[in-house]
Simulated assay, not measured.
Amino acid sequence: MPELIINGPGGRLEARYHHESNADSPIALILHPHPQFGGTMNNQVVYNLYHTFAARGFSVLRFNFRGVGRSQGVWDGGPGELADAASALDWLQLVKPDAKTCWIAGVSFGTWIAMQLLMRRPEVDGFICVAPPSNLYDFSFLAPCPSSGL
């Protein structure tokens, strides 16, 4: 699980990546809970999702949003974090251009960002949302949802 730094729109993003050698292995991006309430890529649920995808043959990336851990930048309330996630997905797709499928997963705040990214990126085939904060954020933009997921 190499530690790496990805260039993001607000500065460098600290990340961890699991690489599958098979050229067409599926890819997955994991997004962490709310940064202002202690959410990081090392959250236990994020960590377990990461390893679950890896165990199933995915090349997986998890990263810290801007201002978290060693990631540069400052909290932006959603738009900047969405841009961070898009940059991370771009990086993952550059590393694995022949991936047969693309999944995105999020935990709490990360689900809100993940679902916004899903609506903007037609290449995302599936998703996993853990504890979506539907009482705090509007998810009505998902009607209709273009992908299947959990």
Rank of each mutant, 00 (worst) to 15 (best):
Q116D: 09
A55D: 15
A88R: 02
N7R: 05
P33H: 12
I27P: 03
L13Y: 07
P132H: 11
G110I: 03
L13G: 01
C145A: 14
A54T: 14
I104K: 06
E20M: 13
A114P: 11
G73K: 04
L49H: 08
N64H: 11
L118D: 06
S87D: 04
S25W: 08
N22W: 07
G38T: 10
L150S: 11
L92F: 11
R66N: 02
G80L: 03
A83G: 09
L92T: 06
S108K: 06
L118R: 01
S25R: 10
Y50V: 11
S108H: 09
V124R: 00
L136I: 02
G106A: 08
N7Y: 01
E3Q: 15
I128F: 10
F37Y: 14
G67N: 01
F58Q: 05
G73V: 05
L142D: 05
F139K: 09
D90R: 02
S148Q: 13
H18R: 13
L82S: 02
A99M: 06
D76N: 12
F53M: 14
F58C: 13
P26G: 10
W75F: 10
S148K: 08
A15R: 02
V68G: 06
L61C: 05
H32E: 08
C145W: 14
L31G: 07
A143E: 14
M41G: 00
V60K: 09
G126V: 09
Q36D: 04
G38N: 00
I104Y: 01
D98R: 12
A55W: 11
K96P: 05
G69N: 08
H51V: 15
Y50E: 14
P2F: 13
G67I: 02
A23W: 04
M1G: 15
H19E: 14
A23L: 05
S59H: 10
R12S: 06
R62T: 07
W103Y: 14
I27G: 00
D90E: 06
L142W: 07
P26I: 03
L92D: 03
I6K: 10
N22H: 11
M1A: 15
P35Y: 01
N64Q: 12
L31E: 05
P133D: 04
F139T: 05
S148H: 11
F63C: 07
N64E: 09
A54M: 14
Y47V: 12
D98Q: 13
P97L: 09
K96L: 00
P2V: 13
C129L: 11
V68I: 05
R62D: 04
R12E: 08
A114N: 01
K100V: 11
S21G: 12
G149T: 14
H18A: 15
T52S: 15
P9T: 07
D24P: 11
R121W: 04
A99R: 02
G11E: 02
L49Q: 12
T111W: 01
S25G: 11
D24A: 13
E123C: 13
N64M: 09
C102H: 10
L49Y: 10
L92S: 04
P132W: 01
F127N: 00
E81F: 00
I27V: 15
P133T: 11
N48W: 12
G110D: 07
